[in-house]
């Protein structure tokens, strides 16, 4: 019981939080709490008294946690980022993966490493998913624009869909632009003219 770690995850997205919990469960039996809001974050952390705090580096509320490392009042337990420099590689890996980790001063690094490794792997997966999602969204938007541009050409020049696409592609190549950009220009121009 005494050697169970209390881990606090600050994460507004429920699915993400659950995925992180799952990945941590594989590293041992911990008390895991999730905090979703950022209001009164510092106070909640002080009350929960965790051994380890994990949060996304992209979360602006990280500064509120960072400020806790300076707290000296007995009510607010001081936490320090996992940077006693005993393991620079781990710190670097964590920051590159976008995870900020805060641990209570004096905790054994060998107890933290497996947990942090699991969290890092999970965060890497998230950032990959995020970029994939962004790319997919962009591709979809570009396709919509190209479809609209094709439609405009088909009506205005009375050409087939294939010919319309070929014309857009040819123009893009001769101007050294992306197909989506040429299509966007055409859509904008036609909106201005209509």
């Amino acid at each position: 019981m005494t050697d169970k770690l209390t881990i606090l995850i600050v994460e507004p997205d429920k699915t993400r939080a659950e995925a992180i919990i799952d990945s941590l469960a594989a590293t041992g039996d911990h008390h895991i709490r999730v905090l979703s809001g950022s209001t009164g974050l510092a106070r909640s952390v002080a009350e929960m008294n965790p051994d380890l705090v994990l949060l996304d580096m992209a979360n602006p509320s990280r500064d509120a946690i960072d400020a806790l490392t300076l707290a000296s009042s007995p009510l607010e337990r001081p936490v320090a980022m996992f940077v006693d420099r005993s393991d620079d590689g781990l710190t670097k890996a964590a920051i590159e993966a976008g995870v900020s980790a805060y641990v209570v001063d004096g905790m054994q690094p060998d107890r933290i490493k497996p947990i942090l490794d699991a969290a890092i792997a999970r965060f890497h997966m998230f950032s990959r998913m995020r970029s994939e999602l962004a790319a997919t969204k962009r591709a979809l938007e570009e396709r919509k624009i190209i479809d609209r541009a094709k439609g405009i050409l088909m009506r205005a020049r009375n050409m087939s869909e294939d010919d319309a696409y070929a014309l857009i592609r040819k123009t893009a190549m001769s101007q050294g632009k992306k197909i989506a950009d040429v299509a966007q220009a055409l859509v904008t121009a036609s909106e201005l003219l209509s």
Partner: peptide, 15 residues
């Protein structure tokens, strides 16, 4: 950067 602590750490770690 999303926060001052993150900006500081990126600078310190050479990112």
């Amino acid at each position: 950067a999303p926060s001052w602590s993150t900006l500081r750490d990126r600078l310190v770690l050479g990112q």
